[in-house]
Amino acid sequence: MTQSITTAPPNAFVIIAGDMKSAKLPEDYPTPSRYAATSSCIFAGCSPDVDGDTIFTIGPHDQLRPAGLTLLFDGVIDTPRRSVSVWTIAWDTLLEEKVATDRTRVRIWGNRPEFPDRVVIGLG
Protein backbone atom coordinates (compact mmCIF):
# COMPACT_ATOMS: atom_id res chain seq x y z
CA MET A 1 0.00 0.00 0.00
CA THR A 2 1.28 3.47 -0.76
CA GLN A 3 0.84 6.63 1.29
CA SER A 4 1.27 10.29 0.41
CA ILE A 5 1.50 13.58 2.24
CA THR A 6 1.77 17.14 0.98
CA THR A 7 3.79 19.34 3.28
CA ALA A 8 6.65 21.81 3.50
CA PRO A 9 9.31 20.35 5.80
CA PRO A 10 11.54 22.90 7.52
CA ASN A 11 15.08 23.28 6.19
CA ALA A 12 14.08 21.59 2.93
CA PHE A 13 14.86 18.00 3.80
CA VAL A 14 13.40 14.98 5.54
CA ILE A 15 14.88 12.11 7.51
CA ILE A 16 14.23 8.56 6.31
CA ALA A 17 15.15 5.78 8.74
CA GLY A 18 13.98 2.56 10.30
CA ASP A 19 14.39 3.60 13.91
CA MET A 20 14.98 6.98 15.47
CA LYS A 21 16.86 5.61 18.47
CA SER A 22 19.41 3.49 16.68
CA ALA A 23 19.81 5.45 13.45
CA LYS A 24 23.24 6.90 12.81
CA LEU A 25 22.65 10.32 11.33
CA PRO A 26 24.80 11.69 8.50
CA GLU A 27 27.28 14.22 9.80
CA ASP A 28 28.49 15.80 6.59
CA TYR A 29 25.20 17.29 5.48
CA PRO A 30 24.58 19.06 3.18
CA THR A 31 26.29 17.33 0.30
CA PRO A 32 26.19 18.83 -3.19
CA SER A 33 23.43 16.39 -4.17
CA ARG A 34 21.44 17.33 -1.05
CA TYR A 35 21.30 13.63 -0.21
CA ALA A 36 23.38 12.07 2.53
CA ALA A 37 23.15 8.62 4.06
CA THR A 38 24.57 6.18 6.56
CA SER A 39 23.76 2.48 6.87
CA SER A 40 20.66 3.37 8.90
CA CYS A 41 19.51 6.84 7.87
CA ILE A 42 18.98 9.05 4.83
CA PHE A 43 18.70 12.83 4.63
CA ALA A 44 16.63 13.57 1.52
CA GLY A 45 16.30 17.06 0.10
CA CYS A 46 13.03 18.58 -1.05
CA SER A 47 11.56 21.94 -1.99
CA PRO A 48 12.16 24.88 0.37
CA ASP A 49 9.03 25.97 2.20
CA VAL A 50 9.35 29.45 0.65
CA ASP A 51 8.82 27.81 -2.73
CA GLY A 52 5.81 25.77 -1.72
CA ASP A 53 4.86 22.28 -0.65
CA THR A 54 6.42 18.95 -1.54
CA ILE A 55 4.39 15.81 -2.23
CA PHE A 56 5.97 12.75 -0.59
CA THR A 57 4.86 9.26 -1.51
CA ILE A 58 6.12 6.06 0.11
CA GLY A 59 5.31 2.44 -0.63
CA PRO A 60 6.58 -0.90 -1.88
CA HIS A 61 8.71 -0.41 -4.93
CA ASP A 62 6.58 -2.65 -7.10
CA GLN A 63 3.45 -0.63 -6.35
CA LEU A 64 4.90 2.75 -7.31
CA ARG A 65 4.92 4.32 -10.71
CA PRO A 66 7.77 6.84 -10.73
CA ALA A 67 7.40 7.45 -14.45
CA GLY A 68 9.00 10.68 -15.54
CA LEU A 69 10.94 11.05 -12.30
CA THR A 70 14.70 10.90 -11.85
CA LEU A 71 16.32 8.34 -9.55
CA LEU A 72 18.09 10.41 -6.89
CA PHE A 73 19.09 7.78 -4.36
CA ASP A 74 19.46 4.01 -4.22
CA GLY A 75 20.74 2.28 -1.09
CA VAL A 76 20.03 -0.10 1.79
CA ILE A 77 19.31 0.90 5.39
CA ASP A 78 18.75 -0.96 8.65
CA THR A 79 15.08 -1.42 9.52
CA PRO A 80 15.20 -3.19 12.92
CA ARG A 81 11.59 -2.34 13.70
CA ARG A 82 10.47 -3.66 10.32
CA SER A 83 9.26 -0.25 9.23
CA VAL A 84 10.55 2.81 7.40
CA SER A 85 9.51 6.26 8.56
CA VAL A 86 9.81 9.74 7.11
CA TRP A 87 10.41 12.43 9.71
CA THR A 88 10.93 16.18 9.77
CA ILE A 89 14.13 17.43 11.36
CA ALA A 90 12.16 17.81 14.61
CA TRP A 91 11.34 14.09 14.40
CA ASP A 92 7.68 14.63 13.70
CA THR A 93 6.49 11.61 11.74
CA LEU A 94 5.23 12.38 8.25
CA LEU A 95 4.87 8.85 6.88
CA GLU A 96 5.48 5.30 8.05
CA GLU A 97 5.47 2.08 6.04
CA LYS A 98 5.88 -1.52 7.18
CA VAL A 99 8.59 -3.66 5.60
CA ALA A 100 9.36 -7.37 5.78
CA THR A 101 13.07 -7.43 6.57
CA ASP A 102 15.72 -6.03 8.95
CA ARG A 103 17.46 -4.32 6.06
CA THR A 104 15.56 -2.63 3.31
CA ARG A 105 16.49 -1.26 -0.07
CA VAL A 106 15.35 2.34 -0.47
CA ARG A 107 15.06 4.10 -3.81
CA ILE A 108 14.10 7.74 -4.06
CA TRP A 109 12.92 9.54 -7.15
CA GLY A 110 12.28 13.22 -7.65
CA ASN A 111 10.91 15.47 -10.34
CA ARG A 112 14.21 17.37 -10.43
CA PRO A 113 17.71 16.78 -9.05
CA GLU A 114 17.67 19.66 -6.59
CA PHE A 115 14.78 20.84 -4.42
CA PRO A 116 12.21 18.45 -5.92
CA ASP A 117 8.63 19.18 -4.98
CA ARG A 118 7.58 15.64 -5.82
CA VAL A 119 9.45 12.84 -4.02
CA VAL A 120 8.68 9.12 -4.32
CA ILE A 121 10.24 6.63 -1.89
CA GLY A 122 10.22 3.02 -3.03
CA LEU A 123 10.93 0.25 -0.52
CA GLY A 124 12.26 -3.23 -1.21
Binding site: P30, A90, F115
Partner: peptide
Protein backbone atom coordinates in the same frame (compact mmCIF):
# COMPACT_ATOMS: atom_id res chain seq x y z
CA UNK B 1 20.23 26.76 1.17
CA UNK B 2 23.54 25.36 2.42
CA UNK B 3 23.34 26.98 5.85
CA UNK B 4 19.69 26.02 6.19
CA UNK B 5 20.49 22.37 5.51
CA UNK B 6 23.45 22.44 7.88
CA UNK B 7 21.24 23.95 10.55
CA UNK B 8 18.61 21.26 9.98
CA UNK B 9 21.19 18.51 10.36
CA UNK B 10 22.39 19.96 13.64
CA UNK B 11 18.86 20.44 15.00
CA UNK B 12 17.88 16.88 14.14
CA UNK B 13 20.83 15.60 16.19
CA UNK B 14 20.04 17.97 19.05
CA UNK B 15 16.35 17.06 19.23
Amino acid sequence: ATCSARQGGWISQWI
